[in-house]
Amino acid sequence: MKRKRKLTQIQLREERAGYAFLLPSLIGTTIFIIIPIVMSLLLGFTEWNPMKGLAGLEFVGMENFKNIVDDERVVSALRNNLIYSFSYVPLTISIALVLATFLNKYVFFKIPIRMMTFMPYISSLVSVATVWMVLLYPESGPVNSILTNVFHVADPPKWFVSSQWALIGIIMMSVWHDVGYYCIILLANMQGLPQEVYESAAVDGASPIQTFFRITIPMMSSSLFFCITLATINSFKIFDQVNIITEGGPGFSTTVLVQAIYYYAFKEYKIGYAAAVAIVLFLVIFVFSTILQKAEEKLTY
């Protein structure tokens, strides 16, 4: 039974302060986050060209979603997003984990090495994408001239101008950009692991590789899951590097969902349709984070 209690003078003062402190944030969050989320959901079921003003708004039910299924741009985007995530996440997390393991124990110059690997992450994607674009320039760019002259590759990849290699180039660049971030998260968690377990493993004569697979990975499982989830969610939001380097091309070979949203909303002014693509993006992220959460509940202790 809940009894309506009378608040004391002090509690009342605290409550008033609570609302006052929260108010600016609450107003802003409502206007800029909560209402937009609801608006986005509703817009997905409409057709609207903002050039015609609010009068041009028309409710069309499920039509946008029916069109999405046959839309080559969105279908390619979804496919590219999946290929990207399924390669980017395992690559990034495994490199980060190996790097963190070495930095935790087995190398000298920890701090400069950690700093060097983290540097790409704080750099703007626009700037580093510009650099990579020139590095991977197919005709006599530095990477390809090393490939031909040092490794004698007769026909080096055409990278961002080839529909076969462009997405691979984007994946490489993104892994390079983000590894340092996941490395420092894993490293921070690794440094918090109990040292006794490692000591007793060393006494028992376990090799570093055994220690890594039998001790480090199981003990790190929850922070690994955290990183995998974070990396997966972020990987579906990829936009900057794609828009700078290839603008989704050649053809639709590197287009991604956020870019499709951007294209439909701000190039073709189909706001309703773009909102429907945004809903698809949200659903994809939601499904993957739910799966990962369920997997974590099963696999970690």
């Binding site: 989320i37 909303a265 984070s289």
Partner: peptide, 17 residues
Amino acid sequence: STMMVPGQVLLLPKYIY
């Protein structure tokens, strides 16, 4: 719960505002 929604979804409503 708002953390679940990717920021880019908010782009269109913000643009309208």
